[in-house]
Design a protein around this nucleic acid. Structure first.
Length: 588
RNA sequence: CGGGGUGUAGCUUAGCCUGGUAGAGCGCCUGGUUUGGGACCAGGAGGUCGCGAGUUCGAAUCUCGCCGCCCCGACCA
């Protein structure tokens, strides 16, 4: 039981100027956090209590899913990372530390880094300590602060430089067992988000820099989310836009009959799809081929799409380059023979085809048939272009960005689009890290095999903010029971009356006995201030004790989620509070 | 890192264009009146106007540089 007048809950009437979105404003106004610097926040007592609730629930659910808790250092020797498979890709996001502190070791390479995640630490540990099939499977997790030098911290705790994350790592003898671990974690995640009162949905996701074969993201739908989700409620399909596909191209689609021979025509000054679609050329965007030039691991390659489609860059990850980027105009001309705007992949028109690492075409170009494309000659295009007759394609793939309204790949129903906040991610990693670090085990036939890994993350601090983003109204936060910093707030309107405070303590004790965390507002403030603050900090159950009510022999009981106020006689108060708390505990 | 914006009291801000003693609201302190949805009256404390140069008799205001913060993009739990 805490007393507000003795506690530390600095609430704000106005939103600080640097907060933009509701959850960020409320984090600060409701006295949950304060900013120290960009992406760095102090958890005030109320915020810390929420974090502790989330952490404990997360711990329980991951343990139920087979996890074993440990804790790794925050500070890592840089060599661990330099020897790992993704130093080049991830070093920019790491805080690098000169351990000597006097600059004598020079600025060239850091001695230490602050851990952004822990694959590079746990895999060597497992390599040393897990050597037999008898030791498997294992799932090790921790809940700790992570450090990432985000290029742009944003929206309070949404993208912070220092944040709290649960990270788990599974180790299995084979693929089949690893998939079992993966699904156990997926279930644990679903249980976690359900218990904390966050409505998260699992969507298929791109694996990004983590590598690995497949993964799901857990998203909390919210307008301010920075992820696009394509989904269909009926079929249950849901995918991150980076990963989403659609059934746009019917299986077994035959090529259109060529309408005529290839024909070059002059298009002076025409360098955009839109210009070519307009008269006098009138080649609709969906009847054009768009040719993009990228550079992968130092070598140029081409991507061919329909004129009306956009490239989904993340999908190029499937091509296996470790790094890739759009080519510059200076790089394009010597290879293609023309500037961007007149590019194409018709056989024999590319100036220097041997320089290319490949020509990758999206499946959807097969819908084009008798299309138009650049002639690789500035100011000229070709018409009557047909895919199999005229184009050189190394490999077909899914490279286009799916648009809402396209048919769902599982049911054919139209896909819808919504935004979401990523609060969790699970990956089946395979043997990427175990190969690199030599984490092998010996089976019962004395054969050595790499350990098959999975890795799993939940952004705890981000989840706190996402719950607020999802649960608030015009007056403030509306905490779900399980995540709330306190469950019951007892507003004592006349704290100078000893009988009012005595009753508050009695009811508080009853609520605590039933399992609730109790805060008593005993401040010498006017009722209006107390009610406004009560709504702002969003404690689920509010009891109001006032001198007026005491004379009538009643107190009031109100849920934050409801408008109605129940008047309860003093004689029934303790029993009623106990019953309400027990019911809420049972539901949570 | 590219583009845009912004920096004045603990918080929200006016003043800046057109240079001339830095203002308000909230919060805080004292006294009084109030007391069921952010009270009222009176008094008070609190500011190197982000930092540094420059122009000027004089700079919050004009110029240049730096820094912080916010928003959009690439990245991520």
């Amino acid at each position: 039981m805490k007393f507000w007048s003795q506690y530390f809950i600095p609430t704000l009437k106005e939103s600080p100027a640097d907060a933009e979105i509701p959850s960020h404003k409320l984090l600060i106004r409701a006295g949950l956090v304060r900013k120290l610097g960009g992406g760095l926040y102090t958890y005030l007592p109320l915020g810390l209590r929420v974090m502790q609730k989330l952490t404990q629930i997360c711990r329980e659910e991951i343990e139920r899913g087979g996890g074993i808790e440990l804790q790794m250092p925050h500070l890592h020797p840089a060599e661990n990372w330099q020897q790992g498979p993704r130093w080049a890709a991830i070093r920019e996001v790491m805080f690098r530390v000169d351990g000597a502190g006097d600059g004598k070791r020079g600025p060239r390479e850091p001695e230490y880094v602050l851990g952004p995640t822990h694959e590079e630490v746990i895999t060597p540990l497992v390599r040393a300590e897990i050597t037999s099939y008898r030791d498997l499977p294992k799932n090790l997790f921790q809940i700790t602060t992570k450090f990432r030098n985000e290029i742009r911290p944003r929206f309070g705790l949404m993208r912070a430089r220092e944040f709290v994350m649960m990270d788990a790592y599974s180790f299995d003898a084979n693929d089949e067992a690893a998939i079992k671990s993966y699904h156990a974690m997926k279930t644990a995640y679903e249980n976690f988000f359900r218990r904390v009162g966050a409505h998260a949905i699992a969507v298929e996701a791109d694996t990004g820099v983590m590598g690995g074969s497949y993964s799901h993201e857990f998203m909390i739908p919210a307008e301010i989310g920075d992820n696009d989700i394509l989904y269909n409620e009926e079929s249950g399909y849901a995918a991150n836009r980076e990963k989403a596909t659609s059934a746009l191209v019917p299986a077994g689609l035959a090529d259109a009959a060529p309408a005529g021979a290839l024909e070059e025509f002059a298009t002076p000054g025409i360098v955009t799809i839109a210009a070519l679609a307009a008269p006098p050329y009138s080649a609709p965007a969906d009847k054009q081929f768009k040719t993009l030039v990228y550079v992968g691991d130092g070598k140029p390659f081409l991507v061919v799409l329909r004129g009306c489609d956009e490239l989904e860059e993340a999908k190029l990850g499937a091509l296996g380059f470790s790094v890739f980027r759009p080519a510059t105009p200076e790089e394009i001309e010597p290879v293609m023979g023309a500037k961007p705007g007149s590019l194409g992949t018709v056989k024999g028109t590319i100036k220097n085809p041997d320089a290319l690492a490949g020509i990758f075409a999206d499946h959807a170009i097969r819908l084009v048939g008798n299309g138009t494309t650049g002639a690789n000659k500035d100011g000229f295009h070709l018409r009557h272009v047909n895919v199999s007759r005229d184009l050189t394609v190394t490999r077909f793939g899914d490279f286009r960005r799916v648009q809402p309204g396209e048919p769902d790949p599982t049911s054919g129903q139209p896909l819808k689009l919504r935004r979401g906040i990523e609060v969790g991610h699970i990956f089946k990693l395979g043997t990427k890290y175990s190969d690199k670090y030599g984490a092998v085990y010996t089976d019962d036939q004395k054969q050595n095999h790499p350990v098959v890994m999975g890795c799993y993350g939940i952004g705890i601090s981000r989840t706190m903010q996402a719950i607020i983003e999802q649960g608030h109204d015009a007056d403030g936060v509306v905490w779900p029971w399980a995540s709330a910093p306190f469950h019951v707030l007892i507003c004592v309107l006349d704290p100078q009356l000893p009988e009012a405070m005595d009753l508050a303590r009695q009811l508080g004790a009853a609520a605590e006995k039933a399992g609730a965390d109790v805060l008593i507002d005993d401040r010498a403030e006017r009722p209006g201030v107390k009610f406004k603050d009560a709504d702002l900090i969003g404690i689920p159950l509010r009891l109001t004790i006032g001198g007026k009510g005491l004379k009538e022999g009643i107190i009031e009981l109100k849920w934050r989620t409801q408008k109605e106020v129940a008047k309860i006689s003093l004689a029934d108060a303790a029993a009623r509070v106990t019953a309400e708390v027990q019911a809420a505990q049972a539901k949570a």
